[in-house]
Amino acid sequence: MKHTHPQPGDIGLTRINGVSGRLIRFGQWINGDGFADYEHAFLVLPDDRLLEAEPGGARIRPLAEYDGAEVLYVCPEGLTEAQRSAICRAATRYVGVPYSFLDYLAIATHRFHVPVPGLRRYVASTRHMICSQLVDQCYQDGGVHLFADGRWSGYVTPMALYTLLATG
Rank of each mutant, 00 (worst) to 15 (best):
E52P: 12
D47L: 07
P98Y: 00
T167G: 00
S153K: 15
P62A: 15
W152N: 08
L105K: 07
R59F: 02
A69F: 13
Y155D: 14
G34E: 06
G168W: 04
R49T: 11
V95W: 02
I11P: 06
L72R: 08
L102Q: 13
G150V: 12
E70W: 03
R25K: 15
R15W: 11
L161P: 12
P62V: 13
K2C: 09
D141P: 00
A166S: 13
Y155A: 14
R84A: 01
S125K: 06
P8G: 10
A90H: 02
V44Q: 03
L134A: 01
D67W: 12
Y122E: 11
I130L: 09
F26N: 10
D33V: 06
Q133G: 03
C131Y: 06
R25G: 01
D149Q: 13
P158V: 13
A106K: 12
D10V: 01
F42K: 07
P117L: 05
L165A: 03
G118M: 03
T92W: 12
P98H: 08
A160R: 15
V44G: 02
A166I: 04
R111F: 00
L146F: 04
R61N: 09
R111C: 01
A160L: 10
S153Q: 15
C88M: 03
G56D: 10
H3V: 08
L161G: 12
G78E: 08
V95F: 02
G27F: 00
Y73P: 04
D67N: 15
A148V: 08
Y38P: 05
C75S: 15
G118V: 02
A41L: 05
G34N: 03
Q133R: 11
P115E: 05
D103S: 11
Y162V: 06
T14Q: 13
A91Y: 06
V71F: 06
V156P: 10
L72F: 09
V71K: 06
Y66D: 14
A148C: 10
V144K: 02
R151I: 05
I87Q: 01
V44N: 02
F101C: 03
A58C: 12
G56A: 13
D48T: 00
N17L: 09
H113W: 10
E39F: 00
Y162I: 05
D103T: 13
Q83S: 05
R25D: 05
V156T: 14
G12C: 07
V114K: 01
L23Q: 05
D47G: 01
G96S: 04
H40T: 08
I24W: 06
E65A: 07
D136L: 04
G143R: 01
